[in-house]
Design a protein around this nucleic acid. Structure first.
Ligand SMILES: [Zn+2]
Ligand SMILES: [Zn+2]
Ligand SMILES: [Zn+2]
Ligand SMILES: [Zn+2]
Lengths: 134, 134
DNA sequence: CAGTTTATTGAAAATATTTTTCACTTAGGT
DNA sequence: ACCTAAGTGAAAAATATTTTCAATAAACTG
């Protein structure tokens, strides 16, 4: 993730390294404040502002995705964990990518044709309770 | 929408009437501020706080749905316009419900069985450009 | 390996969004 | 008409996010 940042023309700085390291270790979605807490051990002077800037950048570059829950929409997950089709646990926050996402492509294509919309991206999010939280 | 508010045990007040009237006339998603602007002609003293309270109430009761876009998640649409499966135009803000949503039920059921999650609700949102905005 | 340039940083302030508090009002029942 | 609890709006508080700006440090140059 870091090396690709550089390939895209951005500098690989200490704060960015710390944020990326924290995100790499996390296997669920995080709020900016949580990212800060997890990344600080790797770079003490890290500020929340830089976390905001870094998660935005990583989202633009496609390495993170925003997460949408009923109450709030302030979370981010690594793209490799969610793939745009995901299952979120309402209580323990885990994000599970589910298999069989190809099922959606024909639906999207059909809708695109029927309506004339040019569909740029989509979001399929199932929210509920994971087995252990039930 | 108003009469059903009463059936649910809530009072049908002037501010609520104004908000509902505004929402009934709008055919796209609105932010709280926009709801306020559209509803004020029908009830001058209307405050933003009451708009927030009313859209939350209407969302709980199922008459509105929150809308999630890339940048912001501060919009609401009438449920009859979106049905949980919708197409949003990134520029003109129109929300179009699309047909053939039953396609999704088997997918949701299968995922539910495969993963053990109890799926409580879902969101399928396609974002792009409508024919006239392309 | 300096020296230079320019992106990036963090603190503070500004802005934006949403919720809480509370005294006052009003819908709807008696 | 009267009563009572639900509902209201202004202001303040709480949250969340962005902007500003002087200082710093990547990455490039010679
Ligand atoms: Zn959202
Ligand atoms: Zn869980
Ligand atoms: Zn459009
Ligand atoms: Zn459905």
């Amino acid at each position: 993730m870091g090396s690709r940042l550089q390939e895209s023309g951005y500098r690989l700085t200490q704060p960015r390294r710390a944020v990326i390291r924290a995100l790499t270790e996390a296997n669920d979605w995080l709020r900016p404040e949580e990212v800060l807490a997890l990344a600080r051990p790797y770079w003490r002077p890290l500020g929340l502002v830089t976390v905001y800037r870094t998660v935005s950048l990583l989202t633009e570059l496609g390495y993170l995705k925003r997460v949408h829950l009923e109450e709030r929409c302030v979370g981010y997950v690594r793209s490799d964990l969610v793939h745009g089709h995901h299952l979120l646990c309402r209580t323990c926050h885990q994000a599970v990518e589910f298999p069989g996402t190809e099922d959606l492509a024909p639906l999207v294509n059909r809708i695109s044709q029927d309506t004339g919309f040019r569909v740029e991206h989509h979001l399929l999010e199932l929210v509920g309770l994971c087995p252990s939280c039930q």
